[in-house]
Design a protein around this nucleic acid. Structure first.
Length: 467
RNA sequence: GGUCCGGUGGCAGAAUGGUGAUGCAGCGGACUGCAAAUCCGCGAAUGUGGGUUCGAUUCCCGCCCGGACCUCCA
């Protein structure tokens, strides 16, 4: 008998999440237990996504996978920002049409995330398809006295919102004092930010009550979150670099526009991915695209690497870390190899200790430690442990290949074919029978040179690709 | 400069007011024609100075070090 999916209330473990606004880990209580609603800030589509970007995407992926296990219905919304000055600039540099650029990079984003075994969002709105919603919000903010027009711009008046700064823990007074950027003369307060800005004829723009223009960045997410999730929803997430100003501003706009709502009930922020101790970012130029990494290691190794630290800790990307993750998966797959998946395994519930670790603010390192314990037992012949390991992996998007495919599947360029390898194994077997160990060892060395490792076991010789 | 987060064995990375997981690497052994894998065993850590406490790695303060953010946009 298998557990129902998702879990019934009585058997549901408590999920705790760190909420940036509370600045504490708190038990997660959905507004509606029958329908959990999440919003994540998606990419601005002008370039390939890099592994730093991937961290927020993976955190969202793990979170939604866990929530789907716990609750009957989850709606996950992640937007595509397809209007932005960086897009306009890139299109100009490339000599490419803006629409062509955003179409192309959106497709690349989808392809890369799909390659990473990320579950797609339920709804993926595009900014350019939601201009009317943004304009409606802006009109309302003006009507309510939270926004004003100035020189063709519409600005949000931070002074009109007493709790501005409450999310990111900033004092509005200090924000003004600490402003290091030249403040536009038409702003009432240095902290005021643009909701709508005028577009010259060569820039993308839409007609509006304030003239032809384009939206500010922050209003997009507020409008799309409202359209698809309502005035109050459960979780809003993104990278810690979005906490201020982006999320602070979203919150201000949304709460001022819909004073009866609560906007996001929990705010999740993942720490940055570092390279050589510095944030991986486009502007620093120290980024690796997802494709760069997948050219050198399997998808699951990259997923595991990104899960090797809890999402709120910074994680330093290294190639040796990728290699270590690959080796960990080698062991896990070895543990599975002895216990083929049975039909009923597909419905098997992930083990309680594993799920409990994930429910503790997505503690993936602890969850992985549980997988190590299961792998150890499975290697000792415990088939139930192997099935548990498989169920655990499936929940977080790992161990989804056949062990043989994992060990033999990555035939790189110039690699020996399986047929060639097996012919050499036959030849070696004959040599061993004839007790010609020099020849047998010669073949082993030859294959080793080509990245193929032989393993003589009780049931014959097996091989794998490795280092 | 301001705000926030963090500093755990060689490395990655959990946890905790009362003898600090897990993995990688290393070392010894078993197994193996040789290997690989697996198994058994070993060594190895709480940045620093104070304070609170019977007891602090954990709580508080200072210091040092690292990272992130500081608003149309380097």
């Amino acid at each position: 008998m298998t557990l129902p999916t998702p879990l019934q209330e009585a058997t549901r473990p408590v999920l705790s999440l760190h909420d940036s606004q509370r600045r504490a880990v708190a038990p997660f209580t959905p507004l509606d237990p029958e329908h959990v609603r999440i919003y994540y800030c998606g990419p601005t589509v002008y370039d390939l996504p890099h592994v730093g970007n991937l961290r927020a995407m993976l955190t969202a992926d793990i979170l939604t996978r866990v929530l789907r296990r716990l609750y009957p219905r989850v709606t996950f919304v992640r937007n595509i920002t397809d209007v932005d000055d960086k897009i306009t600039a890139r299109a100009r540099d490339n000599g490419e049409d803006i629409a062509a650029l955003t179409e192309r990079t959106t497709a690349e984003f989808h392809a890369d995330l799909s390659a990473m075994n990320m579950l797609p969002p339920d709804i993926e709105p595009r900014a350019t398809h939601n201009i009317a919603e943004m304009q409606a919000m802006i009109s309302r903010l003006i009507e309510y006295g939270h926004a004003y027009e100035a020189e063709g711009h519409v600005l949000f008046a931070v002074a009109s919102f007493p709790s501005y700064g409450a999310l990111s823990g900033r004092d509005p007074e200090e924000l003004v004092a600490g402003a290091r950027v030249e403040v536009a003369p038409y702003k009432r307060d240095a902290g005021d930010f643009v909701l709508w800005k005028p577009s010259t004829p060569d820039l993308p723009g839409w007609e509006s009550p304030w003239g032809r223009g384009r939206p500010g960045w922050h209003i997009e997410c507020s409008a799309m979150a409202h359209r698809y999730l309502g005035e109050s929803f459960d979780i809003h997430g993104g990278g810690s670099d979005l906490l201020f100003p982006h999320h602070e501003n979203e919150r201000a706009q949304s709460l001022c526009c819909f004073p009866g709502g609560r906007f996001a009930n929990y705010w999740l922020h993942n720490a940055m991915l570092l390279v050589d101790g510095e944030k991986m970012s486009k502007s620093l130029g120290n980024f690796l695209t997802i494709r760069d990494v997948l050219a050198r290691g399997p998808v699951e190794a990259l997923r595991l690497l990104l899960m090797s630290a809890q999402y709120r800790s910074v994680l330093n990307f290294t190639w040796s870390g990728l290699e270590e993750s690959r080796k960990t998966l080698d062991r896990f797959y070895r543990a599975l190899a002895g216990s083929p998946e049975s039909p009923e395994d597909a419905e098997r519930a992930p083990p309680a200790a594993f799920l409990a670790a994930l429910c503790d603010d997505l503690n993936t390192p602890r969850a992985i430690a549980e997988m190590h314990a299961l792998a150890g037992a499975a290697l000792q012949g415990d088939t139930a442990a192997a099935a548990d390991l498989r169920a655990a992996g499936r929940l977080i998007g790992l161990l989804e290949q056949e062990p043989d495919d994992w060990f033999r599947g990555e035939e790189g360029e110039g690699a020996l074919s399986a047929a060639t390898i097996e012919a050499l194994i036959e030849e070696r077997l004959a040599a061993r029978k004839a007790r010609d160990f020099a020849r047998a060892d010669g073949i082993r060395a030859e294959l080793s040179e080509a990245g193929v490792i032989l393993e003589d076991g009780p049931s014959g010789t097996t091989w794998r690709r490795g280092s």
